[in-house]
Nucleic acid binder design. Sequence first.
DNA 1: GATGAATGAGGTTTCATTCAT
DNA 2: TATGAATGAAACCTCATTCAT
Lengths: 213, 213, 213, 213
Amino acid sequence: MTLADQPSPTPAKRSRRADAERNRAAIIEAAGTVFAEHGGAVDVREIARRSGVGMGTLYRHFPTKDDLLLTVLELQFGSWLADAHQRATATEDPWQALTGFFEQMLTTQSRNRAVVESYTTNGGPTPACAQRCHSFIDELRTRCLDAGLLRPDVTTADLVLLSGSLTQAVLTTGDTHPGQWRRLLRISLDGLSSRNTEPLPDPTPHPDTSRKD
Amino acid sequence: MTLADQPSPTPAKRSRRADAERNRAAIIEAAGTVFAEHGGAVDVREIARRSGVGMGTLYRHFPTKDDLLLTVLELQFGSWLADAHQRATATEDPWQALTGFFEQMLTTQSRNRAVVESYTTNGGPTPACAQRCHSFIDELRTRCLDAGLLRPDVTTADLVLLSGSLTQAVLTTGDTHPGQWRRLLRISLDGLSSRNTEPLPDPTPHPDTSRKD
Amino acid sequence: MTLADQPSPTPAKRSRRADAERNRAAIIEAAGTVFAEHGGAVDVREIARRSGVGMGTLYRHFPTKDDLLLTVLELQFGSWLADAHQRATATEDPWQALTGFFEQMLTTQSRNRAVVESYTTNGGPTPACAQRCHSFIDELRTRCLDAGLLRPDVTTADLVLLSGSLTQAVLTTGDTHPGQWRRLLRISLDGLSSRNTEPLPDPTPHPDTSRKD
Amino acid sequence: MTLADQPSPTPAKRSRRADAERNRAAIIEAAGTVFAEHGGAVDVREIARRSGVGMGTLYRHFPTKDDLLLTVLELQFGSWLADAHQRATATEDPWQALTGFFEQMLTTQSRNRAVVESYTTNGGPTPACAQRCHSFIDELRTRCLDAGLLRPDVTTADLVLLSGSLTQAVLTTGDTHPGQWRRLLRISLDGLSSRNTEPLPDPTPHPDTSRKD
DNA sequence: GATGAATGAGGTTTCATTCAT
DNA sequence: TATGAATGAAACCTCATTCAT
């Protein structure tokens, strides 16, 4: 594709690999779309059809439907996180970085049923993904805290939970009220700002301070 | 089969009715539990087993699995809404009423997979349910607005969306971090308070300010 | 079908069960035939077709293809062993009892691919079956030994192994040379008789008496 | 690809041939092992993997899985028979020759699932193989008969059948009771000896002397 | 009206064979 | 010519729904 393309010294073995790789990419792309549209319960055949390969090819690349789903989710998650990282690094203002992160996350994962399902079922595509996401959000949080912009007792877990929660909202309103989630995001961000001085409730509430039932 | 079969003057038809009603109730109760535990994708047989009736009986009362699911969701939703109404009426302070509403909603719908799924898929169990919920929340909003406690441009749709969004968070953390969602709720409520003066973004963004794609 | 058929006092519940039982029997019968003809690797659909039931019915009665196979084998084995027991008890002469046992076994299991496969793979349909068979053969052996008719160092394991071995021979010649296995049986029985006085080789041969490779 | 590719005066075509022959040998060797271990139902890929060639190469040499299986069986059978022949020729004592033949057969074909399967399914790898085996056994039989060591009415078919039968026994006990089949062999051989004077039953029993069923 | 067995389309996965490189 | 990815027809099994009793 680039000018530097080796015209002939490439061994034959390579060209086959390229074809397989193209198929693999097609499968992943199709699966990404289909899973996003219909969730993880779709018929595998739909993916095979959409990617233009036979069932056998699909199962050669991914030994199990679940493997395919996980691979797709991890890839989507990975590329999203990479993008998020880059944007955050490029943004001077800590609060802007945090805001931008949420914006991008919700824009990207909007309409992706499989991703939202994964949040509901496993708290994220994969434990590893969840961990990476946690680390990244922790950076954003630290930056905001150091700048005195974030409520001091907001934990990373709070922000992670907020992400998943908003993701759900985006999916819900995706088709009908496209822009509405931004309002919710603003509300949440305002609630996160250091202007709010009251401490957040203890995650493990004292039995005497909580109501009976 | 014998004459003694009808011990009371009640005609046979009526006793059938009572029996049928009891069955219907058993089915609904069992379905409520099972759908809440496993989501809408459970095997119908599990419900028949748990309710102690045969498949035929179940399908006599509910012609479709989906009918059963909807009925159950509507009933659960109805009783929840009635309770919410009563509590709200009994609460003087508008803000307390709003807060209590969210608390109760999230406490009740926590761990109910079917309800959360319904928010994701259809924005609520039923259009009718969504409408009733909307109306009720509108009342709470109006009370808070009149008392000057709520951000003036918060719409009812915003609050409804927030409900669904938080519901998701509750389900996610239900088993592992039981109390954490209360922190998220506090953050959101703080963001809703009238202390926040900046206007919320327009739900239907102007074409010139939004990006092309 | 017979005159004694109860016209009505049979409760409804019973009749359903009877139908199901008839289906179950039909499945077992069909499976018995099909497995015997084609071995354990046949398509389950063939069994469903032959028994006149749908796939679901088949899988309601037997949760797994393997369950079905095992059930069929156990039943066939059980009825065969019961018959064998009865015959042996009815036979005075110990040697005749032993002979008759082999005759009946080989006659019955002739042409049954699944049974022979089970001997090859697991040494019998089931550990339990193998055990019962072992016990029964042990009785026969003891009777012959006590009468001084059997080579004294023949073990029950030897006889069991001989059974499986001959079974194979029967299957092989079943279609082409129907009666030939009887000659083999006679040869084996002659080899088992106490006329043969030389001791049998030790099952764990001494390293010095065995050849190098 | 370069001129140096042809170090010897042999034309390129010939080196191809050599390569192809090496591949064919590798396939046969691997297939022999794999079929012996797992039987004829193994995945063809396992053979390709073990032989280090691609699927295409495999199918160029053997147009069908069954062709490969048959070829392998014939070869194994051929080399086995050649060895058997040589040993028999080298053995003076006829009875020893017969005994040695069985010993060698059972030792060699022990643990070879494909061979045993072939006996069950087709009475041997191939009609041709069966024929050659038959001829060879016939020689052994004649020698023993001439020496007056063998029961006079033992046919070659009897001995062939006995071979297949014992083969099965060997496979069955191969892993668990390695030496036991030798006891069975001894019993059979004792039954074959001319000490046994009673005539063997007629292979095609007269309808009047045989029982009705 | 109740029962639960029966149905069969549809889902995931395997594997002998072909074909583009 | 060798390669191994691609193919797709089964194979096994599930489950919403119907129906005979």
